[in-house]
Design a protein around this nucleic acid. Structure first.
Lengths: 334, 334
DNA sequence: GTGAAAGCGCTAACAG
DNA sequence: CTGTTAGCGCTTTCAC
C-alpha cells in the first residue's frame, strides 16, 4: 500500500491540492505550509507517482529514442552509445526520462514512432540518424506535428530541430591542415553522395583546394555507396592505379582503414591519411590513424537540450546547434 | 483532442468497459461486439492511452536499465550497446518498453533505482554490471524486494535472477584448446580477484591444466587491478622477465592488447595470445587476436526474458540462464 | 455478456 | 494563500 498525496495531506493537515502545489513548487504557497508538507512527505517517505502525474498533466517528461538496428558499424562505432549518454546527461539534469527502441527498418521506425506518440508514452522524439529523404522526419513533421529533434542536419531543415557538426568546416580544416603541411595531391573518398554529410564534406574539401589555388583532379574523388573498409580499399586501389597522391581524406574511419590497407599493399611512398569519427579502432591502426572527432556525446547533449527546450516552450532562439569537431592528430599524418 | 475509449464506446454502441475488455482480450465477450468495437477503433484511429492504463493497472510494462558511466571501456567494448539491443528485442516481442539511465557511481545508481521504483515508472530493473558486494543488488533484494535481474552472476545468487556466461567453462575450453595445440607453459593474466568473472576464469584455467597433468606455475599467474592495456603490458613484461611462456590467456581484450605489445617489444619466440569479449578491436591487432565472444546480445535477451517472466508470473523454473561463449580463432593462436 | 460506477493518484480551475 | 471539486483515460468489481 504505497503512500499517496492524500496521506501526506492528512498528516500535514492540508488539502491534497496544497501538497500537489508544493510538489510542483507553485509560487504562492506559504513557507510555513511548505515546510509542514515537506516534513510530512519525509516522515511518510512519500514519492509522487509519476504515472498519475503524467496522466493529469498530459505529459510524461519522457523522451523517446529511435535507434537503427541495421547500421553496419553499430558496434564498431561508439557513436550511438556516446550520443545516448549525452542525451541522458542533459535529460537527467532537466528531470526527463528516456525510452529507447531499436528498429530494423524505416517502416518499423514509423511504427515505433506512432506507438510512442499514440500511446502517449513520450513527450518528444529523438532521431539518431538522418537518412536521405527520411520518411520518419517527414512523418513526424507533416502527419504528427510532434516535437522531435534529429541528430544530423535533415535535407529540408526548416521548422525542424536538429544538431550536427559543421561538416563543411570540419573537412575544410582537415584539407587546409594537410595543405599547410605541404600536401598538394589530396584524394577524397567519401560515402554516398545522397547523404548530406558526404556532400558537405566534399564541399569543404573542394573549397580548401580552391582557396589555396590547387586545381581539382576529379580522378582523385570517390564517393562510395557504403562506409566500409572494403569500399575504402577498392577506391584507394583505383586511385593508386592512376597516381600516388600525397594525402587522402575520407569521411569515415572504416573507409580510412581500407585506404591504409591499400597503401600498405601498393604504395611506394608514405601517404597521409585522415579518417572521420575517431573510432577507438583509429588508435590501433598501423600507422595510428589521424581522425576527426565528431563529439557524439555533445551532439546527444544538445539534441536533448533543443527538444526539451521546445517542450518547455523556452525560446532558445534557434532550431539547431552546430557542434565543433576536433582533429585528433596521429601517426598517419606525421 | 485525442480519441478515448468513450468515443469508441459511443460509436460502437457499447459501454466503455466493454471496449476495455476488448482491448485486454477478455475471454467472455461475444465475437460480434468484439468486431463492432474493433471497427470503431479502426474508424477513429484509436490507440489506448498507455499512461492511463498504467495508472489503472498499476503496471507500466516498462523495464528500467541502469548503465554505468564510469566504465573505462564503455566505448571500446560494445558490450553495453549489444546487451541493450538484446534486451530491446525481447522486450519488444513481449510488448514492453525500456528506459535507461547512466549513473556515475554506486550511490547515484541507488538513487536512480529508488527513483524508478518510487515514481512507479518501471515494473522491473535490469542491472548491467555485477560488481563485487554490489550495493544495488543488496538494496533491491533486501530493501525493496523489487523485481530485477543482473547481467553477471552476483556473489550471493540465491533468490536473485541473473544471466551470465559459464566463465569457468569458457576459460577451461580456451586452455584446453591451447594444450591440444601443444602448449604447456601457459600464462594467465586476469582482472581483479574480487570479481566473480576473474575467479571463475582462473578456476577454469587451473582445472584445464590439472586435467592434463600440467603443474601450475604461480609466477605465470597475474591478477591485475584493472582491465587495461597498460596492466596487460606490465604483467606480460614481468612474465617475460621470468620466462617466455608459449601461450597467454587473458580475461579481457584490452589486457591482451597490452600483452601483444609486450611480446612485440621483448619476446624472442611466437607466443599464442587469447583475449576475452571479442571486441571489434581484436580483429585489428597484429596479429589478429583470438578472443572469446561472450554473446552480449544474448545475455541481454535472456536477462529481459527472465525479468519479464517474473513480472508475468510465468514459472520459468529457473532463476538464471547460462549463455554459451564462442572462441573466435584468429592469427594470434595460429 | 455487458453496463454503471467507483477509483487508480494527481492536477487545476474556481472559490473563498 | 488554501480547500473543494471535477476530471485525466482506463480498469474492475458488482449487478443485471
Amino acid at each position: 500500500m504505497p503512500v499517496t498525496i492524500k496521506d501526506v495531506a492528512k498528516l500535514a493537515n492540508v488539502s491534497p491540492s496544497t501538497v500537489s502545489r508544493v510538489i510542483a513548487d507553485h509560487p504562492k504557497i506559504s513557507d510555513e505550509t511548505k515546510k509542514k508538507v515537506f516534513e510530512a512527505m519525509q516522515k511518510l517517505n512519500y514519492y509522487p507517482n509519476a504515472i498519475a502525474r503524467s496522466l493529469a498533466n498530459k505529459s510524461t517528461k519522457t523522451l523517446g529514442l529511435i535507434l537503427p538496428n541495421a547500421e553496419e558499424d553499430l558496434f564498431i562505432n561508439p557513436f550511438f552509445i556516446q550520443a545516448m549518454r549525452g542525451i541522458s546527461v542533459y535529460a537527467q539534469k532537466k528531470g526527463y526520462y528516456i525510452m529507447y527502441t531499436y528498429s530494423n527498418n524505416e517502416n518499423e521506425e514509423i511504427d515505433f514512432i506512432k506507438n510512442y506518440i499514440y500511446s502517449k508514452w513520450v513527450d518528444g522524439i529523438i532521431l539518431l540518424t538522418a537518412r536521405e529523404n527520411d520518411r520518419c522526419i517527414e512523418y513526424l513533421k507533416d502527419n504528427e506535428k510532434y516535437p522531435f529533434v534529429v541528430v544530423g542536419r535533415p535535407e529540408k531543415s526548416d521548422g525542424i530541430l536538429w544538431v550536427d557538426n559543421n561538416n563543411f568546416k570540419a573537412m575544410y580544416d582537415v584539407v587546409n591542415y594537410l595543405i599547410n603541411k605541404g600536401h598538394r595531391d589530396i584524394a577524397f573518398i567519401g560515402g554516398p553522395h545522397t547523404l548530406n554529410v558526404t556532400r558537405d564534406r566534399l564541399d569543404g574539401y573542394l573549397r580548401a583546394l580552391k582557396v589555396h589555388g590547387i586545381s581539382v583532379d576529379e580522378k582523385l574523388i570517390y564517393e562510395q555507396v557504403d562506409f566500409t573498409e572494403m569500399k575504402g580499399y577498392e577506391a584507394m586501389m583505383e586511385i593508386l592505379d592512376y597516381k600516388e597522391p600525397s594525402a587522402v581524406v575520407t569521411t569515415d574511419d572504416l573507409i580510412a582503414f581500407g585506404v591504409l590497407k591499400a597503401i600498405k599493399e601498393k604504395a611506394a611512398n608514405k601517404i597521409a591519411v585522415v579518417g572521420f569519427n575517431n573510432t577507438p579502432l583509429a588508435e590501433y591502426q598501423q600507422p595510428k590513424l589521424t581522425s576527426v572527432d565528431i563529439k557524439a556525446e555533445e551532439l546527444g547533449y544538445y539534441a536533448a537540450k533543443l527538444l526539451i527546450g521546445k517542450l518547455e516552450n523556452e525560446d532558445i532562439g534557434t532550431n539547431h546547434y552546430i557542434i565543433d569537431t576536433e582533429l585528433i592528430e596521429r601517426e598517419s599524418t606525421l
